[in-house]
Amino acid sequence: MIQRYRASAGVMLAPAVTLIGIFILLPMLLTVWLSFQDWSTQTPFSSASFIGLDNFREIFGASSVGRDFKVALINTAIYTALSVILILPLSVAFGLMVYQHDVAGGTALRTVLFSTYMVPMIAVALVWSKLYSPSEGPLNQMLGLIGIGPQPFLSSPGSALVSIVFLNVWQQVGYFTVLAIAGLTQIPGSLYEAAKLDGANRFEQFRFITLPLMRRTLLFSAVIAIINAVQVFEPVALITQGGPVGSTNVLTYHIRRVGIERAQGGLGSAMAVMLMLSLIVVVCALFALANRKDQE
């Protein structure tokens, strides 16, 4: 009986497992294999030659290849950290605002917030590049009205990456607000009523009921926000081209430049493997932290 059950389970799982194997695991394994090869993306895989860890030595070395990779890795980490730090609290704050039953216009606000997520990135990039324009940009004109001089935004290595982060936060916060609202709906109203009877104020209700019970939602949001942020590509390709001085050169854009534009497939694969490993480490650390909190 158990054997028949196992066989039928295997048959039912086979299509999904095969598809995952072909379209997810195989490309990942191929990328790992290529990271140990000297290979031009314009030649067949058969032309690849094994060079051990040379690609990894190169990307962490002192040459321009290593320097550019390390800058791109740090830029990606900063972009991801800032995006998550801004998106999560904002999404909870907006979620609380929209979820209040006694506030009029909650549905309209929810629609407005989510609409930014539906706008194609090409449109967002075009509009924001003009908003940030140092000469005729509306942001600088508004700052001028309150006596603040023109800001360089995308034209300065000190502010270009942060400017791209704001663009990302603006576009993504609506989606994460919807996730936050979904988390809020899971919290029983009776807990708040009991807390009120015990004399808890709004802040205490938020601190001791809302936040702890939203932990799973926030963990999911954080993981998705990290994955989205690490994959940033369009605003960099459309607006800054990685500049100025490589300050917005993120890993996906850099891998495209190395692996496709320069056809250095082995180096590009080594960079992609490092990106994948970094992502796995961060996400695992996040889950481990959440599990430890649960156990406490």
Binding site: S129, S133, P134, S135, P152, L154, S155, S156, A237, L238, I239, T240, Q241, G243, P244
Partner: peptide, 14 residues
């Protein structure tokens, strides 16, 4: 002034 020197993907810009 480098802040006045930025180009975009279409080789236009500030």
């Amino acid at each position: 002034v480098p802040a006045m020197a930025t180009a975009d993907a279409n080789t236009t810009g500030p």
